[in-house]
């Protein structure tokens, strides 16, 4: 019959339309603005309204998510900040678009390099969020951030991030990437135990 295909198509759209009410009623009041509601809308059973109402609610960010890199510092017992970065330069060497600039600190007396960067710049207008710097850093000093709310009005003033802007405490890192953090800490503890035994 001519027109049957069109009717079938309209039937499908109708079931989509009705499905949204069914789901809303079944999840009465819990479908929106609750974590389990968002989880439901991103699961295989999602039907009906699919929208996640950013900014009121936000999709859960998976642990591996990568945006702009950031530098990690450890907070010592006396409250001082210790950069994990030793300015070895691997991130700057592996960065595909070459958006990392590192100034190495030289000891003013001996002239030898000190394992701490004097400055660290990332031009986020070049950065391609590939995650290589984090992947190849041997000291777990640079990691990819989860913060994507970075829009600005002026790139010339704000878009070259310096060390101050990039540095974040290790606790922040532990917060956004708990399993990675736990794994790295375990490896570190193991190494230290080995050293102590020797």
């Amino acid at each position: 019959m001519f027109g049957l295909g069109i009717l079938k198509g309209m039937w499908v759209t109708l079931t989509h339309f009705v499905g949204s009410f069914v789901d809303d009623i079944r999840w009465l009041g819990r479908r929106y603005y609750t974590p389990e509601g968002i989880a439901h809308r991103t699961s295989k059973d999602a039907r009906g309204v699919f929208t996640v109402q950013y900014p009121e609610e936000s999709l859960p960010i998976p642990e591996e998510f990568r945006f702009i890199p950031f530098l990690i510092y450890d907070v010592e017992e006396d409250g001082s900040h210790q950069d994990r970065c030793t300015s070895c330069g691997i991130c700057a060497k592996v960065c595909p678009p070459q958006c990392i600039w590192i100034v190495r600190t030289d000891d003013p007396e001996t002239g030898r390099p000190v394992p701490e960067p004097a400055e660290f710049f990332i031009d986020i207008d070049i950065c391609m969020n590939c995650g290589y710097c984090a992947e190849y850093c041997p000291f777990d000093a640079i990691k990819m951030d989860h913060d994507f709310e970075l829009s600005s009005f002026d790139r010339h003033a704000e878009h070259i991030y310096n060390k101050d802007k990039l540095s974040k405490p290790a606790s922040y890192y532990a917060g956004i990437r708990p399993t990675n953090y736990a794994r790295e800490e375990a490896i570190k503890a193991e190494k230290e135990a080995k050293k102590a035994n020797r």
């Binding site: 595909p96 678009p97 207008d125 600005s152 790139r155 878009h159």
Partner: peptide
Amino acid sequence: ASGGGPFKEGYNVVSGVDKYVPVDVYVPGC
């Protein structure tokens, strides 16, 4: 669009649309 991005060094790439038209908001990310 903000500053040329990873392709900035390319010979056919404009390093940021703001070289030609005024830009109001920049959204970083790639």
